[in-house]
């Protein structure tokens, strides 16, 4: 690992962000014109042209993109069409809510997935393993919005333990975290089980057992450490799942994060806000993946990014 590697990865990340900006800019324009939603049917072509010009949408697409990207580099995503406020400011206001929900969901997901995944591998083909498989299958196949609604129904209405929705770093976090965490847990659980199964069948595990190393040490030190790479990889990939799931979860629980505002922005064809939200989520994902790349080296010294 070297500074050069970090710089290379940062350059790749920038290139990815640039590609992402082009894709989201192009796709948002393909979904239609916000003027359609803003101007009444009786509006004359002059009225429409006037509103378009006021939003800068009358310029050629390339010019619009250039303005957008050159401002975005400076942290300015433009003015939200729907709320007439700085899109960057609106997203930054929501950033903590999304980050907190993502972190708690990932933490919950890992808390559920790792012990069950490991124990399922250790107790392969037992009732525990089979139950784990069913839980994982349910977690992966259950739509997030549906699971969220079920949680509201059972734990807000039938057993009134938690609020139905709303924001706060307290009990308001519980149901959204479970909704998102359960989805994350399912994938990590499956990969943990597979990776541990492979690791438990290796020669060094057999040797460790033959040498009389306690079983808990065989599992946690010898097997788990060596199974960590695929687990870390799926965990990083789940960061994208969390961000994607946050869009739905935040909407169901009225959690004021980037996902919820992104949905509003998409329906309102609020281009600056949509573009800003996607770029921000993309950036989070890239940063998480960069961190994971660095962590690989610490987990497995055989991995090196230095070209020989």
């Amino acid at each position: 690992m070297s500074v050069r590697f970090i710089i290379e990865r940062l350059m790749q990340a920038l290139l990815t962000m640039l590609m992402l900006s082009i894709i989201v800019f192009g796709l948002s324009r393909l979904t239609g014109d916000p003027i359609n939603l803003m101007a009444p049917m009786e509006a004359s072509p002059e009225d429409i042209a006037r509103i378009k010009a006021s939003l800068g949408l009358d310029k050629p697409l390339l010019t619009q993109y250039w303005i957008y990207i050159s401002n975005a580099i400076q942290g300015d995503f433009g003015q939200s069409i729907k709320w007439d406020r700085s899109a960057a400011q609106m997203l930054l206001e929501r950033f903590p809510a999304t980050v907190v929900l993502s972190i708690t969901s990932m933490a919950l997901g890992l808390l559920i997935a790792l012990p069950i995944g490991i124990w399922s591998a250790v107790k392969r083909d037992t009732w525990f393993d089979n139950a784990g498989k069913i839980v994982a299958l349910a977690g992966q196949s259950m739509p997030t919005f549906w699971f969220g609604i079920l949680l509201i129904l059972f734990f807000s209405l039938y057993i009134p333990l938690f609020p139905t929705s709303g924001y706060g770093f307290d009990i308001h976090l519980v149901l959204p975290t479970i909704t998102l965490g359960a989805f994350v847990a399912a994938s990590i659980m499956r990969v943990t089980r597979s990776a541990m199964l492979d690791a438990l069948e290796t020669d060094y595990v057999r040797t460790a057992r033959a040498k009389g190393v306690p079983e808990w040490r065989v599992i946690t030190v010898h097997a788990l450490k060596n199974a960590a790479i695929p687990i870390l990889t799926i965990t990083a990939l789940q960061a994208a799942t969390v961000l994607r799931g946050a869009v739905v979860t935040e909407t169901v629980f009225a959690w004021p994060g980037i996902g919820k505002i992104a949905i509003d922005a998409v329906y309102g064809r609020d281009f600056p806000l949509v573009q800003g939200a996607v770029l921000m989520m993309g950036m989070i994902f890239l940063v998480v993946n960069l961190i994971v790349d660095v962590l690989y080296v610490f987990l497995d010294p055989r991995i090196s990014y230095i070209k020989r």
């Binding site: 509201i152 139905t164 929705s165 909407t251 629980f253």
Partner: peptide
């Protein structure tokens, strides 16, 4: 609150 069921709840 966008989700109708949440509003009902």
């Amino acid at each position: 609150v966008k989700e109708p069921f949440t509003r009902y709840a």
